[in-house]
């Protein structure tokens, strides 16, 4: 991680100590035990700070505008998720001017020390316990599929569905990282969202991906067919799956003129 950016963050966050979690294309992610305004000594919760640093290559006016609008966009998405009852980190505080979002931390440490993303959990089971296809795994995959189904039923698109962007904890699976999220009612966009996850599962969990993917889809279907959202949902599901087949055939990208 580039020190300059971490130093910038330290300055902007004023006295708050944090650990570095990751550096993505757009943002740095930190973890802290400190709550910005409601610290309870008994509380052992931790929080995630997402920081969108200035990009030196961008014209300052473009940069300010993008940082602000992206940060706001992500907060809006998270708020809508919370309202819709779709499990995701909840907003604690924001600083749009500096591109900072403070949010709840979801997840726990697996026995091998890694964060409990779906990816790490599946890898842990595979390597350490050798039980990749247990009932528990099936149940979790179905739950994850159901969660994504709920997301799409609300016409929300994650935009970057990978097994690293799904967090597990006692309360169940949760979605994280909404930097590429958007809204759409189109079956095409939902199909692409699913396809990205399918491809991610195939490349990250190659040995059992076909089982995982079928369980994910089962959960996704259940969200549409159990009627908890609307009676028309089943129709949408059929349309989305049809589109998914098209997307699989042509690859995610359209055919372009040279």
């Amino acid at each position: 991680m580039t020190d300059r950016l971490v130093d910038e963050a330290k300055l902007l966050l004023r006295n708050v100590s944090f650990q570095i979690v990751s550096q993505g294309a757009e943002a740095l992610v930190f973890k802290t035990n400190i709550h910005p305004y409601f610290n309870d000594d008994q509380d052992e919760s931790s929080y995630i700070i997402k920081y969108r640093p200035r990009k030196p290559y961008r014209h300052p006016k473009i940069d300010k505008s993008i940082t602000k609008s992206r940060t706001i966009g992500e907060v809006k998405f998270m708020f809508k998720l919370a309202k819709a009852g779709i499990r995701a980190p909840r907003v604690v505080s924001t600083d749009y001017f500096n591109g900072i979002i403070w949010m709840e931390h979801i997840g726990y440490s697996l026995p091998d020390g890694k964060e409990s993303t779906l990816k790490n959990w599946l890898w842990y089971l595979e390597k350490v316990r050798g039980e990749s296809l247990s009932e528990e795994v099936q149940r979790i995959c179905v739950e994850v599929g159901y969660l994504i189904g709920d997301l799409h039923l609300n016409d929300m698109i994650h935009g970057d569905l990978t097994s690293s962007n799904i967090m597990l904890d006692k309360k169940g699976p949760a979605l994280i990282d909404f930097g590429l999220s958007s809204y759409s009612a189109l079956p095409e966009d939902k199909a692409v969202d699913l396809y990205v996850l399918e491809r991610a599962m195939n490349s990250t969990h190659a040995d059992y991906a076909s089982e995982y993917n079928s369980w994910l889809l089962k959960g996704y279907e259940k969200a549409h067919s159990d009627g908890h959202y609307s009676k028309q949902a089943n129709k949408s599901f059929v349309e989305i799956i049809k589109r998914l087949e098209d997307v699989r055939l042509r690859g995610r990208k359209r055919s372009m003129i040279g």
Binding site: I72, F79, A82, R90, V91, T94
Partner: peptide, 10 residues
């Protein structure tokens, strides 16, 4: 409370 706070931030 969490929903209200998020709402205020928007």
């Amino acid at each position: 409370s969490k929903l209200v706070i998020a709402c205020c931030h928007l």
